[in-house]
């Protein structure tokens, strides 16, 4: 059920300060169901902090947060999260990692096995069920991380620079993987990234944040035809135009003199 404003996630006048440092200042953001929104901006602009607040891991110092019209006070199964590091539990096998959320939900064994094998096939890791994360490459680990967060079915996915630790080729493959998962499940995704091209490639909307104290200074709706292969998207004029606009906006924020420099 969506709230009065019709948004899946509603952020109103949100602020967060740590002691004397204001990380995030007066943010307003509405995310509709099924959207893929990316947050980009200079380093330290508070985009991860915003994500953590939506996840319920960090409490805001001002403003309101709503998911499905209900206030966000702590982490919940409606909002799944994928981190760049520590994405998987190292003491669990691939199977157990993906099954974790399902087990917490109390799924039956049969349902759990069916779901897990479906996702393992989906991410192409059949045969790796009993491996531990330490035996996997970075790309494989993030694939499992995405799978386990999709598997237990939260409506909202929060991604904190999920591909930041991967090399550029693996990153491209993972982006397509994520795109595929999103398009086949219709989840609402909020992603933080420092990679502008990634943001434009994947999202339906890109929000640019200013340097600390972070505010959303510009929003770019992205309409691209994503039905074709990667080349058709990345080499299209629409993509290039949007990428340049967003990139310029971010660069502008990076080069703003003074401000709350670390």
């Amino acid at each position: 059920m969506q709230g009065v404003t019709g948004s899946k996630i509603a952020v109103e006048s949100l602020s967060k300060s740590f002691d004397s440092i204001t990380a995030v200042d007066n943010i307003d953001l509405k995310i509709g169901e099924g959207e893929f929104v990316s947050l980009v901006g200079p380093s330290g602009c508070g985009k991860s902090t915003l994500l953590y607040m939506i996840g319920g891991f960090v409490q805001p110092t001002g403003g309101r947060l709503l998911a499905d019209g209900k206030p966000i006070t702590k982490p919940g199964i409606d909002r799944g999260i994928v981190f760049q590091d520590y994405a998987l539990f190292p003491w669990l096998t691939v199977y157990d990692n993906i099954a974790y959320g399902l087990q917490m939900r109390g799924c039956s064994r049969a349902e759990e096995q069916a779901t897990v094998s479906r996702y393992i096939d989906l991410i192409g890791l059949k045969g790796f069920e009993t491996r531990y994360p330490r035996e996997l490459s970075g790309g494989m680990k993030q694939r499992v991380a995405l799978a386990r967060t999709f598997a237990y079915g939260p409506d909202i996915l929060l991604l904190d620079e999920p591909f930041g630790a991967l090399d550029s080729q693996t990153r491209e493959i993972m982006q397509d993987e994520l795109l595929r998962l999103w398009r086949s499940t219709g989840k609402t995704i909020l992603m933080v990234t420092h990679d502008v091209s990634e943001a434009v490639y994947l999202s339906t909307r890109v929000c640019v944040m200013s340097r600390r104290p972070g505010r959303i200074v510009r929003e770019f709706p992205i309409t691209l035809d994503r039905t074709g292969p990667r080349e058709s998207i990345v080499l299209s004029a629409a993509y290039t135009e949007l990428h340049n606009q967003v990139w310029l906006a971010v660069r502008h924020e990076v080069l703003v003199p003074g401000g709350d420099t670390p």
């Binding site: 891991f57 799944g80 999260i81 520590y86 539990f89 959320g101 917490m104 237990y152 939260p154």
Partner: peptide, 14 residues
Amino acid sequence: PRLFLWSAAAFGTP
């Protein structure tokens, strides 16, 4: 690492 605790909480771990 607190990220483990956060992940677990997001999965609805009591």
